[in-house]
């Protein structure tokens, strides 16, 4: 089943009478259950693209189907947003309540969920992100990674099929990033469709596919190995390859050739140890 089908999507921001095209003719297909990472330089249109998916921005040009819904169909917008939840960059900007369990229940209450169902759904969402013991805490007393997991629980309580992470790890310390990534991996294993925007290449190694974007266009879609070991392609996209790939090419440039281009640091060490 297709989770997302987009055909020839374009989008232009209008500001003070000046138009600023950010997406040009993008076509994408995402299978249900796929884990897609979206990479691209700042300003390439990543966030705009995912905001079209759940109707945060209005689709102007092109065709888009998310699950079985058309984001243009305003009468079903709430349904779309329930199906396609989004976690943003700054956890502090996402809290509406001063108690974790009320914060997680906020979306449910907005959707008129029967009050007797709420505690169970909140509890389930919090345990999915490993935060069940914090339901009575104030979000502000939590660490960055914990806050972001509570924000995830707020989305999960709605039982979405598609989860979008828009740089959800960029404000976290390494520990917090690991926590959020572990949750994300678990959700993928449960069969959720995941779209993740990030600037950390090491976070996308587990993705099924990478969408590489540049200046409003989809430059290429492919496996992490295909995309991340291609120095020319990444340079074209104004990105920097992972460290292992950089070392591979820098060695190659000075006449030391490894058998294959490593993607991870472990592979790099393995390849270097193979040199006689």
């Amino acid at each position: 089943m297709q989770a997302v089908t987009g055909k020839q999507i374009s989008f232009t921001y209008e500001y003070d009478g000046v138009s600023n095209p950010v997406l040009e003719d993008i076509s994408i297909e995402i299978e249900a259950g796929e884990f897609i990472a979206i990479l691209g330089a700042n300003g390439c249109g990543k966030s705009t693209l995912v905001r079209l998916l759940n109707g945060l921005l209005p689709l102007e040009k092109g065709e888009l189907k998310v699950w079985n819904l058309d984001p243009r169909q305003e009468s079903r917008l709430w349904e779309l947003r329930r199906l396609c939840g989004m976690v943003f960059q700054n956890p502090d900007n996402q809290f509406v309540s001063s108690i974790v369990e009320e914060d997680v229940a906020f979306g449910l209450r907005n959707y008129d969920t029967p009050e007797e169902e709420i505690p169970e759904r909140v509890g389930r969402a919090l345990s999915l992100v490993g935060m069940q013991e914090y339901e009575r805490y104030s979000p502000h007393m939590l660490s960055g990674g914990q806050k972001q997991r509570v924000a995830m629980a707020g989305v999960l309580a709605m039982e979405p099929e598609i989860l979008i992470f828009d740089e959800a790890t960029s404000m976290l310390d390494p520990q917090g990033r690991r926590e959020v990534l572990a949750c994300l991996k678990q959700l993928h294993e449960m069969g959720k469709t995941i779209l993740m925007i990030t600037h950390y290449v090491e976070e996308v190694l587990d993705a099924d596919r990478i969408f590489l974007m540049q200046k409003g266009k989809l430059l290429k879609s492919g496996s992490p190995r295909e995309i991340l070991t291609d120095r020319e392609l990444l340079t074209q996209a104004e990105l920097i390859p992972p460290l292992a790939v950089r070392i591979y090419y820098d060695l190659k440039d000075s006449g030391i050739l490894l058998d294959r281009c490593p993607l991870t640091n472990e592979e790099l060490v393995e390849e270097l140890c193979r040199l006689k």
Partner: peptide, 13 residues
């Protein structure tokens, strides 16, 4: 204070 958060790799560099 955390000037690199949210920047792409080139932006960071």
């Amino acid at each position: 204070d955390e000037p690199l958060a949210g920047l792409d790799p080139w932006g960071r560099l």
